[in-house]
Amino acid sequence: MKVPILSELKLKGVNPEYLFWIGCAGSFDDRSKKVTKAFIKILNKANISYAVLGKEESCTGDPAKRSGNEFLFQMKAISNIEILNSYDVKNIITTCPHCFNTLKNEYPELGGNYKVIHHTTFINNLVKENKISISGGVYKGKKITYHDPCYLGRANGIYEAPRELIKKLDAELVEMKSCKSKSLCCGAGGAQMFKEPEKGNQDINIKRSDEAIETDSKIVAVSCPFCSTMMSDGMTSKEKDIDVVDIAQMIEKAEDL
């Protein structure tokens, strides 16, 4: 796969329109790397001028901030902003709602002002502008439920773009018992992804998986790398043959990219 690196383009005097912020999960986690690649195929298909930071990318500092380590967060933010501003980055797309939220909401006060777009919104706009077309393919008529990531939904009010995409795949979107602003967390937010849960009578991802199973769908669509891990772990421990897939991957598959 050929992926344009921002520093290399800049050397050639090329100014890409968008920066694709991959995120730590998108760079290192096996499930999420597939999402990264699926999204890159979509970008290519739509002829989008973009680049990635490559080795210059680093953690946004989100998990540190949600743990309460404001120092570490601001140190990460300031050094990231220095890099982004040195390349005069204006538009950032990201496949991770946590990166999205932090870059969009918490960087401006530290000097980082960018237009930040989550990949589901971005793809939905591409479809609206006829830059790509999607049809159902393998998903036609299938029952699919969508899990709202807290940092995309409640935190930033984005509920519709992912749903519109699922509907464009000609699939039957079935909502879980709690959805949209009332959606139930997968259990990974607030740095929970990186620690054992506190004592309780159930793990949060199991509770959420139960809600997904109740919809009788064979597919759970996600749009966050952490939700993806949590939900697929949930399905594994429930021994359910239910696919947990990111919307970018669904489009990759439906369009045979």
Partner: peptide
């Protein structure tokens, strides 16, 4: 630069 013990230099291995 990542919450997991991966090397910064390996960020573009994918």
């Amino acid at each position: 630069g990542a919450p997991w013990p991966y090397n910064q230099q390996d960020r573009e291995l994918w």
